[in-house]
Design a binder for these strands. Structure first.
Length: 122
RNA sequence: AGGAGCAGCCGGAUAAUCGCACAAUUUUUUGUGAGGAAAGUCCGGGCACCCAAGGGCAGACCGCCUGAUAACGUCAGGUGCGGGCGACCGUGAGGACAGUGCCACAGAAAUGAUGACUGCCGAUGAUUCCUGAUUUUUCAGCGAAAACAGGCGAUGGUGCAACGGUGAGGUAAGAGCUCACCGGCAAGGCUGAGAGGUCUUGGCCAGGUAAACCCCGGUCGGGUGCAAGGUUGACAAAAAGGUUAAGGUGACCCGCCGUCUUUUGACAAACCGCUUGAGCUUGCAGGCAACUGCAACCCCAGACAGAUGAUUAUCUUAAAACAGAACCCGGCUUAUGAGCUGCUCCUUUUU
RNA sequence: GCGGACGUAAUUCAGUGGUAGAAUGCAACCUUCCCAAGGUUGACGUCGCGAGUUCGAGUCUCGUCGUCCGCU
């Protein structure tokens, strides 16, 4: 798990992120990015969404969510976030192909997608 | 040795690094941290709030007996029936003379058999013929014909099922008409706590279906579900639009308050309920058992975008199946890898 | 967390316990100079799955799987 200050909490925060309509995706993940930060001291927050349509069983859904969390945690720890720090929030959504894959696969996909995010203006 | 039946166990382990939730310490440490099904939500409760004076009807559910339990559609032990050579398994198992419905096709007929149709018979009565006696009339015949009256319920091979079955006697033909055995029913005796078991006697009336309606007996206040419900605080935000229903103002309409919807502001709450319980483990006692009583010991997840993960190494046959708590219990059902243990049965071989 | 409905032909649906049907679509033929429309014929079904009741289940009972919807 990642500490509380890095988590997205309320339904409204999620809605606000979706509304920004800044999306990148590949065969593994889809990432929604929120607004550009005004206050640089504010932490970037992360949300993870795994719907029931992804897989019927709770164990499989928990597994992929934990992998995504681990990926983000390691990224924060090693300070590899890069462009992400400019955004207020990020939401990660897995795709059906992600079932059964390992941590390194998720990490590879995540860092690839980060590079494609539009860089912050000013 | 092979093949079966039943009951049960296990549900990865160790180490290192990084990391999460809660609690206690106190300022960085320590402790604890998913399951046998946590699942499906199929039953039964606890708990909470709302409604309800009490009872009946209706309704829903249940249905061999006895016991267990807070309760149950659950469990235990037994009875009957069915299956299996057997160990053992399954069982939704009250009532079909209270009534109603249904039983396709086939078949004479599927349930008022006062017995239609198809049949069998010619004992009995009548008719005709023949023979004999009387001599026309009439009478008689172990005589014949036909099947009119009548007798009979065996024959009809269709069906899942035909108002008991098989065999013998019996008769004009037949028939529980009589007898033996089998099956079913009723009454009585003995036996068991009861379902029932068993023996004797009797007479032959009884199609199936109630997981069809129904009858009988039993149980049940209704609803909503911890997002129940309660406590404390904050904002008592702004704009736009609507006002069907309920409330206030008003005689009424409009309007206003209120209320609803949308948008924008990323701050928009915290606590209790929330885990000590029909609790776990061990021992003793009662009981065939389910289970119950007593004593000791233990505290064993409690989140709120929601905790057990990741990587590496070693081991186990192998980086292991089904699968993740959300108020809590008792069951049921379903899913499940590799293996292990105990008891029992059958077959074959050897001694 | 709680509750409801539905699974039948390629598709949309019927179907009082007794032979599984309709419409559309598909294929072939007829009609037309050709196409459409029309007509004739045909192929299409583990009635979601597994047990039970019954002489006999698409239908009745139980379990199970899947899909959809609602409330909070």
């Amino acid at each position: 798990m990642i500490p509380r200050k890095y988590r997205l909490k309320t339904q409204k925060a999620f809605d606000a992120t979706y509304k920004n309509r800044c999306i990148v995706s590949d065969s593994m993940l889809t990432i929604y990015a929120g607004k550009i930060k005004n206050d640089p001291l504010q932490q970037t927050r992360f949300g993870f969404v795994v719907s029931k349509k992804f897989h019927k069983r709770a164990v499989k859904r928990n597994r992929i969510r934990r992998l995504m969390r681990e990926c983000i945690r390691l990224a924060i720890k090693d300070a590899k976030l890069g462009v992400c720090e400019n955004y207020m929030s990020l939401i990660l959504i897995p795709k059906e192909k992600t079932i059964g894959c390992k941590l390194c696969d998720v990490q590879k996909s995540f860092f690839k997608l980060i590079k494609r995010l539009p860089a912050a203006k000013s």
